[in-house]
Design a protein around this nucleic acid. Structure first.
Lengths: 192, 192
DNA sequence: GAATATAATGAGTACGACTCACTTTGGCAA
DNA sequence: TTGCCAAAGTGAGTCGTACTCATTATATTC
């Protein structure tokens, strides 16, 4: 764990006010984007955070950068849950994880759905890469337990899951369809 | 077939210059967006079409409207191919259609990929709705021929295909992954 | 308690979507 | 043919928003 009280290129500590403002901006952005969608003006975020607009742009040079940071923040919370599932020994945990992932994406629709609308580079697929270590473990265990086909690899599974989550959010699938889509996919992935 | 030489609410014919300009704008837009991405300024489209900016906005009141029209235009070409497959009697035509769809989406990446970046309402899922009649026929035939599970319905299959195409384009899947994803999905959809 | 690098500020700039008062023109009837 | 007029075209101007930068403030270091 590197202390985030030191700058990227090492050297001096990051100033206390800068750390504080960065946190405030992220918090404000999450709230503003959740309320107004990602097309909300950056001024609104600055106002809510109680800083000048220039400060927002110092920390996040472009709007996509800001949105990306917000999403990565949300993702951190998910990772914790995924790691908890790794500790279970259930070979079917992989499927439970897929369901968890999709429900999480759906519940954050307000933010995720708008990401696509504004030229953001954040893709669910990129975000999922961070979950990969956990997925690898879950997949291997499922394979060993005979719960999925032998030839399934995580760099195939992750894009598939990403595709479903992305589209579920973007096209506003209802819960029945989300569940059904996962069932169809996972059913097909089980050992033949 | 209603003549498109008459206006929406019936009444007078649409003026010849209006029809001509609409066609020119669509053609210009397709070229400009393909070259510069959908974030290209509307001025550029107007310039290329040889009309004033106001004329573009008369025909397509918002930029999303313009992008949507371009995509729908592209889709028309696909529909022809789908209908040709319906005329085949092969129960496996459904799978061939899925592959065709994904390759078409991938080849138009320049336009499709940028759609998501600009707040466009055009979703691949919406577009696919127009293909539904053809999909219904293909699916029914596949079911009768025992090529897919009995309980699969087209309003489940279409979103699944849409999800894969959308993500394949957005995340720039390579051909191997596109093929593999379709295989995994279709394999799972076959009769158990 | 200077010195100074780092951060904050916010008026200003750039740019692109969209408007609208005015001009032009295609279709129709006399 | 000719005149009428609604439909269509025009493009300078408005407006909102992402982003800049010269200036000011302040957190750290010695």
């Amino acid at each position: 764990m590197n202390r985030d009280s030191v700058g990227p290129k090492d050297g001096r500590p990051v100033r206390a006010d800068a750390q504080r403002n960065r946190a405030r901006i992220l918090e404000a952005a999450e709230a503003v984007f959740a309320e107004q969608g990602a097309s909300a003006a950056t001024d609104a975020v600055a106002a809510r955070a109680g800083v000048a607009i220039g400060t927002v742009f110092r920390h996040f040079p472009t709007k996509p950068d800001l949105l990306k940071a917000v999403v990565m923040n949300l993702l951190d919370r998910l990772i914790g849950k995924a790691e908890a599932m790794v500790r279970d020994q259930d070979p079917n945990a992989l499927f439970a994880f897929g369901a968890l992932l999709m429900e999480a994406a759906a519940s954050q629709r307000a933010i995720f759905a708008r990401l696509a609308e504004t030229g953001v580079q954040v893709r669910v697929a990129d975000a999922l890469e961070r979950l990969r270590p956990s997925v690898d473990v879950l997949l291997e265990r499922a394979r060993d337990g005979g719960a999925v086909r032998e030839d399934l690899r995580s760099d195939e599974l992750i894009p598939l899951l990403a595709a479903l989550c992305q589209e579920a959010v973007a096209a506003e699938w209802d819960e029945a369809l989300r569940r059904r889509a996962l069932d169809l996919l996972f059913d097909g992935l089980r050992r033949a």
